[in-house]
Design a binder for these strands. Structure first.
Length: 455
RNA sequence: UCCUCUGUAGCUCAGCGGUAGAGCGGGUGGCUGUUAACCACUAGGUCGUUGGUUCGAAUCCAACCGGAGGAGCCA
């Protein structure tokens, strides 16, 4: 008999008479004549309640000594439940123990801190919360591909090892080879020059956007910054669409449409897990996702945002002044206090943005945009790219970049240049937004942060 | 890199200068169509590490190690 996922059983109107389920025991309650086993196989949040009569062959060995965490294989009939709390339950005809869980199995039925669960990252997917997080993670990855593929975007696999620093994107990890304990550098360098783990696939993405028109990347990204915050990781996943024949307006539109699409997809396809988050993690989650799905986002230029912050009467720790970066507290005020909804800030001063962003006609600002969401801050950062050869060269010089290092990037402006734009969406930040989980370490299977690369 | 908090049983925590505690989890027994089941008994600890103060340190002090939060940087 082949295994039937518990999700399939619990969502059925009519079920096959006799099925096989396999999974891990969440809890067990014994009485004299039978035991209730709560079995979870990760296919959904809910457990299947199994009734195992004491007269079953092997009851003593296979059932009586079961503890939380043990793995079992159970054959039986699905019947309407006589108890409250579930529609179906299983009347077991055969219970086979696959593996006991030793008595110090760390996952209990209640009261674990996120910090503790992080320390047992190999077992935490078996908890309700993390099972739900990683089911939603899978679904969101699927929905992202669907969103782009439905709109004619091609998925491009940009390199993970790179020799070009996407300027300003952050500190990089160096890639080296070893001879014993000796790191090979200089002339012995494997790639003939210093190479790094990618901090962004954007520059390579642009080369494909100027060929296939609409592309996106979706893959791991690495930043060697020594950040200790709940929203930074050294290894994370990023989605970077790049669109030819597109300006900032279209770029902002796509980012907003995408966020709405993903909120809608999660509400539609992850309702059981979202309801769980809504109960135990963030009471306003579903309401917020519905808001994001149904209502328009706010847009405000950097210049207007600075004015708004100055006139808000709010006391900020850091100064608000044209030409300075908006601080976390300023972004939070805009999206959480003033607008109370996702907010796109656009047209930043050129001095605080990277070389590749397109200069606006005012000569002072560039066509950049950041999409801010309540509770998390920046979730998308993007821009229209500078497609004019002379202006790009000026920008590179102004940023002290060696044009020779970026000759292939400059070439895109020499051979059939086109207006184009794109953005980066942090996948984990999206998941924080969709699940209500407040620490990035808890939405990625095995988090890498400074000083921590266990598992 | 800077600032702040924190480390006691498998887990969550109490104790805050005078013989190491509870709940949950584990074991044993009982009871019940139960559902964070319930009741009784029981095992389980170099109080993060090292040093210091003290008649006496889980408790006070210092350093170190681990964890967390915030700032910056960004996604």
């Amino acid at each position: 008999m082949t295994r039937t996922p518990i999700a399939q059983i619990l969502s059925s109107e009519e079920v096959p008479d006799s099925v096989l389920v396999q999974g891990w025991v969440r809890t067990k309650r014994d009485s004299k004549a039978f035991s209730f086993i709560e079995l979870n196989d990760g296919s959904c949040l809910s457990n299947l309640q199994i009734v195992a009569d004491a007269v079953l062959p092997g009851y003593e060995d296979a059932v009586l000594h079961l503890t939380t965490g043990a793995s079992v294989s159970v054959e039986g009939k699905i019947v309407p439940s006589r108890g409250k709390g579930q529609k179906w339950e299983m009347q077991a005809t055969e219970v086979t123990l696959l593996g006991l869980a030793e008595e110090d199995f760390p996952l209990q039925k209640k009261g674990h801190s996120m910090e503790f669960l992080r320390s047992i990252a190999h077992l935490r997917p078996r908890s309700n919360l993390f099972g739900a997080v990683f089911r939603v993670r899978s679904r969101m990855a699927y929905a992202i591909h669907q969103f782009f593929q439905d709109r004619g975007f091609f998925w491009v696999h940009t390199p993970i090892i790179t020799a070009s620093d996407c300027e300003g994107a952050g500190e990089m990890f160096r890639v080296v080879t070893m001879d014993g304990d000796e790191i090979k550098l200089g002339d012995d360098e494997f790639f003939g020059k210093p190479s790094y783990l990618t901090v962004s696939g954007q520059l390579e993405g642009e080369t494909f956007a100027t060929a296939l028109s609409n592309i996106y990347t979706f893959g791991p990204t690495f930043r060697a910054e020594n950040s200790h915050t709940s929203r930074h990781a050294s290894e994370f996943w990023m989605i970077e669409p790049e669109i030819a024949f597109c300006d900032l307006e279209g770029d902002m539109g796509l980012a907003e449409e995408m966020l709405k699409y993903l909120a809608s997809d999660a509400l539609e396809n992850c309702s059981e897990d979202l309801n769980f988050f809504n109960r135990f993690v963030d009471k306003g989650l579903i309401e917020r996702l519905e808001f994001v799905r149904d209502r328009d986002f706010q847009r405000i230029s950097y210049t207007d945002a600075v004015e708004l912050l100055k006139e808000s009467g709010e006391k900020f720790e850091y100064p608000v002044e044209y030409g300075l970066n908006l601080q976390s507290e300023h972004e939070r005020y805009l999206t959480e206090t003033h607008f109370e909804c996702p907010t796109t800030v656009f047209n930043y001063p050129k001095e605080i943005k990277p070389f590749y962003m397109r200069k606006n006609d005012d000569g002072k600002t560039v066509a950049a945009m950041d999409l801010l969401v309540p509770g998390i801050g920046e979730i998308v950062g993007g821009s229209q790219r500078e497609e004019r050869l002379d202006l790009l060269r000026e920008n590179m010089a102004a940023h002290d970049l060696d044009e020779a290092e970026y000759s292939w990037y400059v070439d895109l402006r020499r051979y059939g240049t086109v207006p184009h734009a794109g953005f980066g969406l942090g996948f984990e930040r999206l998941l924080m937004f969709v699940t209500g989980v407040t620490n990035i370490r808890d939405v990625i299977p095995f988090p890498r942060t400074p000083g921590s690369a266990e598992f």
